[in-house]
């Protein structure tokens, strides 16, 4: 299974970016191969509007099954849901790096969100 983490870093030690749509980038981790790749999100970071929708399309095209991020607004959540991508909000989870969040996902400590946890443009 592939998981996308919103991050401002470039490896597993990077911080989780609290934003989804305007995240600096995504680290896409494959739990089967234990490999990861990073994807730059500059274009959507600077989008005039609809950044969440575009970022959701971006990670959906990478065939991820789950997104781990700080917050997820309503348009991004709707797009991710339509693509069958689960959302895990880790804003209040007490850890800050991708590797910490990954460990929590693998240990089944996180619950998938059932809706947006913030309004748009929070």
């Amino acid at each position: 299974m592939k998981i996308a983490f919103s991050t401002s870093g470039s490896d597993l030690n990077g911080d989780i970016d609290p934003r989804f749509g305007r995240a600096a980038g995504f680290l896409v981790y494959d739990t089967d191969t234990k490999n990861y790749e990073t994807v730059n999100n500059d274009q959507n970071l600077n989008a005039m509007q609809g950044a969440g929708i575009q970022s959701a399309q971006l990670v959906a095209e990478l065939k991820v099954e789950a997104v781990v991020t700080g917050h997820c607004g309503p348009k991004a959540f709707r797009t991710l849901s339509a693509a069958g991508v689960k959302v895990y909000n880790v804003h209040n989870a007490g850890f800050k790096t991708v590797s910490e969040a990954l460990k929590a996902v693998e240990n089944g400590e996180l619950q998938a969100a059932t809706g947006a946890d913030v309004d748009g443009h929070w």
Partner: peptide, 23 residues
């Protein structure tokens, strides 16, 4: 349609696109 839209009002995910009329 989604690739054309400058304002990200359409999202293409394989099937019929999602429409965000407010955008």
């Amino acid at each position: 349609c989604a690739r054309f839209c400058e304002f990200n009002a359409l999202a293409a995910l394989g099937g019929a696109p999602l429409v965000f009329p407010e955008l």
